[in-house]
Design a protein around this nucleic acid. Structure first.
Lengths: 391, 391
DNA sequence: GATTATTATTTCGGTATCAAAATATGTCAA
DNA sequence: TTGACATATTTTGATACCGAAATAATAATC
């Protein structure tokens, strides 16, 4: 009786590629074990993929005994992918080779109140910049803020870019570069980046929580990005928060997003609170905040503490709902270190009953500013198939 | 080139059975379409299952044109399954035939402060009662309150039954009845019941919210029960709720569970509030509450309204997180009708921003008191395989 | 009543995968 | 040096599933 089969030939080859992206290099037998496929079958496909140039055979692995394994790995030269991360303030771009190592990256600031059509041109210019002409371009992925229609490849709406409404992003870039273009909400792209390169590598269930101008999250369940029934899963910006002692129910974004925090600090400075914070063009900037935090400024740390506590509470709620192993925080606020993280963790431990939940690990993303762009690139890598037969 | 294969032979037969449980009866061709399998393949397996006695061929379907389909359906006589729903107050049991129609059911009250070992004996007695001696017993499913270890088949802990700690439920029943025994948390069992018999039949993502002594939920994502990393997903009883205007953060269960509501009513009556509610043995009972609601008692309705509003807010949070199509409410509180449901829905609409979410439908479960037991039975049906080859 | 159209089911040859056996390639110990 | 062992890979034969063609069973049409 045969064991369970994964799927058709092309799915097997896709899963071989996928596994190799995670583990760098292995033997055929090990692949067979990991994918629950017969070694003979793996052999057939690996041979074919080597012949097509997508894989290459490495050195033999030294082993204690027995015939040494022939290691196979991705062939970096097989092509490149490009990922773009779009934001109201910056466009990040990266190109990665076929083994998903970064080739080039570029970041371009977006002027405030820039129009959608100019932003589009900037995206194209960033793509042209990071593209490596010596390698074949295989795909482009774009992480877009706000709501998106991933099937149609349309940016539906984003309030912080003027005129960003129903932008047929995928079609436009597809026509220009003649390769598959995939788009996704940018927080979800970050969650995917963690899956491929970061802390989500070995974890089946986690939530990537992005705190920037707004607040959003990417939810990975059973190792897959979960999008929900209408692609709204994880859009927690308007999460209702009853603040203890206050009458009205506020939305999470209005209380704990980066902009809300900076706004509160700005108001405090203007009201003459005792603080080392200073204004730049009438506002507290991220850098000013970080500077004040590094000096242990009490006013500043208090605000971060209350935001951290609130996020901690929200994480408790998420944890009760989904029982994830980990929560990964992303965004500039991660640079504030413990000023934000320790009150968050403290409140998490406080509110989560040990009897009905296991406390998820909470950590900052370590992928840096390129998270989103890397995730977008991963998106197109993920979608790429070894061979689409033209029939 | 072959299209995608689902899996091994036994998986195909299992999925044929599964489909037939949902659609009652269809043709081979229709099965092939629904399961994305070649008609020839379906034929082979259906023939085999008919031969084994698990399926039977029904009448021919009248059709507008073409050869009429030969309908196949489950053979109800092929065996029976038993489901038990356990609670601090009652033990429900049902037996269902192979087509999952109820054969018999029985409900036995549990005395308060009953010991775990007596409850176990009651379970066995209920099983003996509902069992149909003329059919082969194929499996038993148990819905257990509190935390469970579904792999080991152990009831880990439940506070409302004395001594309910690390009960090796599955092993004990397996030894006695010599059939596979599966256990699951009882709210999850309800969610499965909705999937099989109720409003979750055609819906991929929904949450079944059980409001009884405590509050828990069963989460169905992509058509499958989601359990989380440590089997705690959906255990939302201790969901932190900041009540607007109050200083302390309370747990959901302490504010909006059935026991919390009855407790609040009892206190009101004792404090001499103007109400038609009456005490029974010093407490407001469920029946007393229902009676008062039917008379539109203001004090009573106000309490239900505030509980409903709070649950509404929690549903908003769930909806933002998971984007489900539906929320199904279960438990005695569903008998209060609009007194609970309309404030809930109103708050839901109020708090959920149209831009970032689609409002899930909210409804009461229609499966009655047997939900849990039916779900437990469904659990064992689900786990049952057409043929476990003895090799 | 015969023919055509239409849909369901079965037959049949091809192929992807499996399991098991055979082969390859190393280490280790005598 | 040689044989014993261990593990990786390939070969080989069996089989589950597919797709296409053949066959079956009905209604509609002439």
């Amino acid at each position: 009786m045969p064991a369970s089969r994964i799927s058709s030939r092309y799915d097997i080859e896709a899963s071989v590629m996928q596994k190799l992206r995670l583990v760098k290099s292995t033997s055929r037998v090990e692949l067979a074990r990991q994918l629950s496929i017969a070694p003979s079958t793996v052999g057939i496909h690996v041979d074919r993929l080597v012949e097509l140039g997508f894989l290459r055979q490495g050195l033999r692995k030294e082993s204690a005994s027995g015939r040494p394994a022939t290691l196979v790995e991705l062939n970096p030269e097989a092509g490149q992918f490009i990922g773009i991360d779009l934001d109201s303030r910056e466009v990040h771009g990266v190109s990665v080779d076929f083994a998903q190592r970064v080739l080039r990256d570029r970041t371009v600031p977006v002027r405030s109140n820039e129009s959608a059509s100019n932003v589009l041109k900037m995206i194209e210019s960033v793509i042209d910049d990071v593209r490596d002409q010596s390698r074949e371009l295989l795909g482009i992925g774009i992480g877009v803020p706000g709501t998106v229609d991933i099937k149609q490849g349309i940016g539906i709406h984003y309030q912080f870019i003027r005129g960003w409404k129903n932008i047929p992003l995928a079609k436009r870039l597809q026509d220009r570069y003649l390769v598959p273009v995939h788009i996704e909400n940018n927080i979800r792209a970050m969650a995917l980046a963690e899956r491929w390169f970061g802390q989500g590598k070995e974890i089946a269930n986690y939530i990537c929580l992005g705190i920037r101008s707004g607040i959003g999250s990417g939810v990975i369940l059973n190792g897959e990005l979960f999008r929900g029934s209408h692609h709204f899963a994880g859009e927690i910006g308007s999460w209702p928060c009853a603040i203890a002692g206050e009458e009205k129910i506020a939305s999470l974004e209005r209380v704990a997003s980066l902009s809300a925090i900076l706004h509160k600090m700005t108001e405090g400075v203007r009201a003459g609170k005792s603080t080392s914070l200073c204004l730049f063009r009438g506002r507290v900037t991220v850098d000013a905040m970080l500077e004040a935090v590094s000096q242990n400024d009490k006013f500043c740390c208090d605000i971060l503490e209350s935001a951290g506590k609130l996020i901690g509470q929200v994480i408790v709620q998420m944890a009760l709902m989904l029982d994830p192993q980990k929560i990964i925080l992303a965004g500039p606020i991660t640079k504030t270190g413990d000023a934000f993280l320790s009150p968050l963790r403290k409140n998490l431990t406080n509110l989560l009953p040990a009897m009905h939940a296991k406390e998820p690990e909470v950590s900052y993303s370590e992928l840096g500013e390129l998270v989103g762009a890397l995730g977008a690139a991963a998106l197109s890598v993920h979608a790429w198939q070894p061979l689409k037969k033209t029939e």
